[in-house]
Design a protein around this nucleic acid. Sequence first.
RNA 1: GGGUCGUUAACUCAGCGGAAGAGUGCUUCCCCGACACGGAAGAAGUCAUUGGUUCAAAUCCAAUACGACCCACCA
Length: 882
Amino acid sequence: MADINNLSSVYEPQLVEDKWYEFWKSNDFFAPSADYSKIPFSIVMPPPNVTGALHLGHALDNTLQDILARFKRMQGYNTLWLPGTDHAGIATQAVVEDALAQEGLTRHDLGREKFLEKVWEWKDLYGNRITSQLSLLGSSCDWTRERFTMDEGCSKAVREVFVNLYEKDLIYQGNYIINWCPRCNTAISDIEVEHEDSSGNLWHIKYFVEDAEDYIVVATTRPETMLGDTGVAVHPEDERYKDLIGKNVILPLVNRVIPIFADDYVDKDFGTGVVKVTPAHDPNDFEMGLRHNLEQIKVIDNHGIMHENAGVYQGLDRFACRKRVIEDLTEQGYLEKIEEHSHAVGHCQRCATIVEPMISKQWFVKMKPLAKPAIEKVTAGEIKFIPARFTKTYINWMENIRDWCISRQLWWGHRIPVWYCDDCGEVIVSKTDPTVCPKCNSTNLRQDEDVLDTWFSSALWPFSTLGWPEATKDLAYFYPTSVLVTGRDIIFFWVARMIFSGIEHMGEIPFADVNIHGLILDGQGRKMSKSLGNGIDPIKVIEKYGADTLRFSLITGVTPGNDIRFHWEKVEGIRNFANKIWNASRFVLMNMEDYKTINVENKLTLVDYWIISRLQETIKTVTRNLEEYDYGEAAKNLYEFIWDDFCDWYIELAKPRLFRPQDNMERLLVQNVLHDVLSDTLRILHPFMPFITEEIYQYLPSHNRTIMLDKWPIADDEKIWTDFVDDMQDIMQVVRGIRNIRAEFNINPGAKIEAILIIKDAAKREIFTQNSSYIESLANLASLYIEDALDTKPKQAVSAHTHLVEIYIPLEGVIDIEKEISRLEKDFKNAENDLTKATNKLKNEKFLAKAPPEVIAKEKGKAEEAKLKKEGIEKRLQILKN
RNA sequence: GGGUCGUUAACUCAGCGGAAGAGUGCUUCCCCGACACGGAAGAAGUCAUUGGUUCAAAUCCAAUACGACCCACCA
């Protein structure tokens, strides 16, 4: 360690952060010890995308987890924070495909096996970037237990779960309507579709009734799907169309004869009240089709191109086809009118391509039976969402859940563990790869081509990472995990699925608390996105300002669950705070050369009692806030205690006592208080700012191996001396009063002046007398006189008044009496206002009857204080006016 | 259509039943033996609107307005 006196007066995080991370990691401080007699505390990290880069969302998410992990570790819990990464099926495959496209290749040119080799190469190359970035943040996760959703253990867990669910009839395969992304070329689940309102048209098309002159008009937003219409629906009670039910219409352009039928689904008041029904390309039409036995005609293929069933339109892109269909309808006189209409259009979450609903053979998880216990555990309070309002979000979604489409037509992911026998058609679902058909002994087996939704494996994360399906020690000890920390954007994708998976496969909830945080937005409140180019790279922030500053900036002044706007100004403010901590610590350490530990009891003075009390209160609040996951409030309390109380008041008061002590004991005493307060402060600050606190900690005369394994301070109520705190506040008020006069009368800050305090209350006068040296130094006084009364009150003086004290500053030369009078009159008015407010309350009988006694007592105190202050000013005004 | 969040000083946000707060910015003064990434003092707010509950409302309730987000199968 460098000599404390040579340290820079500006804190330079770049010089210390890497050093300490390496120190912690190489000493295995992050890895929980084998001491299983201790109480466990465990968190699994939401696994970031393996090929991704750290963004501010990750920075926030992991800062919160690290705060909890470090806090609990210091409290003595056997703490495991388990890190890992996600294979992120579509996202990763897309990145590698993009890279291939640079060489003019597609994945099909390489073939499945070669392509997967490429993805693994990619993973090995870039897979560590995110984890090394997490290290830069200071994340105290146990890298020795790091996992990956496609590692051997997790893959085993996936198969186990798939087979279990299949055997319980909770996984099935079938032809249903699903969301299809024509660009990604795969099915996606309902929640991977993002609906966005877009202005479109509602086209009104005439469908002529068979064998009649009559026609009915259907309204549609997607005219190209009419090519697949196999019916027309009206509401059963719609008088307009009642007579037509059971008749047929002739589908324009196609000339197919299709039935008119009645269905409750139809809304009489929307459009024309007539719905064209395309069972193969619309989820509602699909349902109606089933109810009325309609034919399903697929007219759009997997690439979004019109299918051969589309007749002359075959080969056209679906949107080009829309144009052509409109043109043809217009030409042939079928188009009645075009209305403007805004409606929600589904886009692929990954690539923003407009999703096409279509019938497809896919694998599904039956959700209702799984959702039921998952709802119950939450409503029963076994799993708690913090903030609580997210409970509702979760329950609403779970109650309206639909089956989960889990198969994806991708190559990167967990291959579905299903084999088909080409000889007898047997379907084999197996945990291990089969070699022969159990039914016909054929070896002509073919594995299902598809992979599983990436969230299928993430859903198992809290137990697959601890060794399941093996009965490992870690699993027995750390499961259920203590808390899950994650963003509100993945409650459905991830949290909900972990909950039902944990209950179903472990028979136990995966975590007791779910701590949801908001999203990081840019300065204007917009989501950060690549297309807007408004993203902030957290690594850049760390390089410039340090990880501690980034961490603290992300959490301070933030309400739980609310979104957070990122502002550089705030980062700079926190950088200044870090610098403040650095310099205050430097001050303490620079005055430690002759320090030795003494027993400070019975030697403390008012200011010592005060700062120790404030420290206890801060420890208490910060501890409670952390237990309640209120990071913002905890950070705010730390900031205020350190900057306002410790730096601005205590250190200032410590200076004369250190430099010009009455005796050697005084210096020793102050050194001890400074040391102890700093030491505790560093420890309660450590979870928030791990690096700077470790750096300073190591300079403390008394320190252990590392701050991160030192003890979390426990607040001592007996060290909260409220009387001393009150007295100190009285003194601070007087100091502020004198300073205010100095500033208002432009007294040179360097000039030492004289002040007179009139204090009637004998006990208070005694306290002020005992502590007069503090007032002298803080207000920079040459002399201070404390009296019970003043016989001849000087006219050539300015005054200020608190409820206890009249302050007089005699001024040489002439003071502007008029100005002084108006200054005092303003104060007088304020005191009078306070007094009337309080007395009015006290005159109110209902208030006296119903308000709690302590509130009434407080109000009486306020009235008394205001009265004394008012009287003081009044008397002074009389003198000035005569 | 349903739901959630927000509306407090010029800006960014805390506070969420008992005397309006912070940071930034602004004004004035100050390099005083930790820090000018600093210190001292100061100006600055009908706490969106309207009703209600209460002795007491920025804080609870209800409506409204304006933002933002989420869910949803009105073609």
